[in-house]
């Protein structure tokens, strides 16, 4: 049973989404979207990492536990990673992460992995808008959500 079925979609719900963007393609793509000055929903807070390969699954869990309703991981297109293959690692980790999340009843749509190049400002807006719409439809994560905390592997 998904946690979402436990909730009714709250009125006036504004999704909180954290976006992890690699510096070289996706972050530059977001800058490109900025440069084109087209407006898009303000729900995504972008956190810059050098490469999508840096995105530790624990970042995603941390985001959920800190109150995110969704997480977006954006990488360079296959073959374009500035560091050769970090995006392949990211893609594989995302797959594993989705399995883990589904075991904990978190809808896989709450964690999206995609590719955005430095030229694809419009694609960035499209993916971001879709993500906001999806999360809006899914509704908030349980307010006292501890899912992230529960499955966070403490490594220290």
């Amino acid at each position: 049973m998904s946690e979402d079925t436990l909730l009714d979609t709250a009125e006036g719900f504004e999704p909180k989404i954290v976006g992890f963007l690699c510096n070289w393609c996706s972050y530059a793509g977001a800058d490109k979207a900025g440069g084109s000055q087209k407006s898009y929903p303000p729900n995504v807070s972008v956190i810059r990492v050098m490469c999508s390969g840096r995105v530790d699954p624990q970042f995603v869990l941390k985001a959920y536990s800190a109150g995110a309703d969704g997480v977006l991981i954006l990488a360079c297109h296959p073959g374009d990673c500035h560091y050769k293959e970090g995006n392949y690692m990211a893609m594989q980790r995302h797959r594993i992460l989705l399995r883990m999340l589904s075991e904990h009843g978190i809808d896989s749509a709450r964690c999206r992995f995609d590719y955005v190049s430095a030229a694809e400002g419009d694609r960035f807006i499209e993916i971001l808008t879709e993500m906001v719409d999806t999360i809006r439809a899914l509704g908030p994560m349980v307010s006292d959500n501890t899912v992230g905390n529960k499955i966070m592997v403490k490594r220290s």
């Binding site: 990492v49 050098m50 490469c51 390969g53 840096r54 995105v55 530790d56 699954p57 624990q58 500035h82 560091y83 293959e85 970090g86 690692m89 980790r93 490594r155 220290s156």
Partner: peptide, 22 residues
């Protein structure tokens, strides 16, 4: 080159990435 792929992968959490620490 500072991509951080190893940092994210280290099962023991023994690697840290300067400036992009956990």
């Amino acid at each position: 080159q500072g991509c951080g792929t190893c940092v994210a992968a280290c099962p023991a959490g023994a690697i840290s990435g300067n400036h992009f620490t956990n």
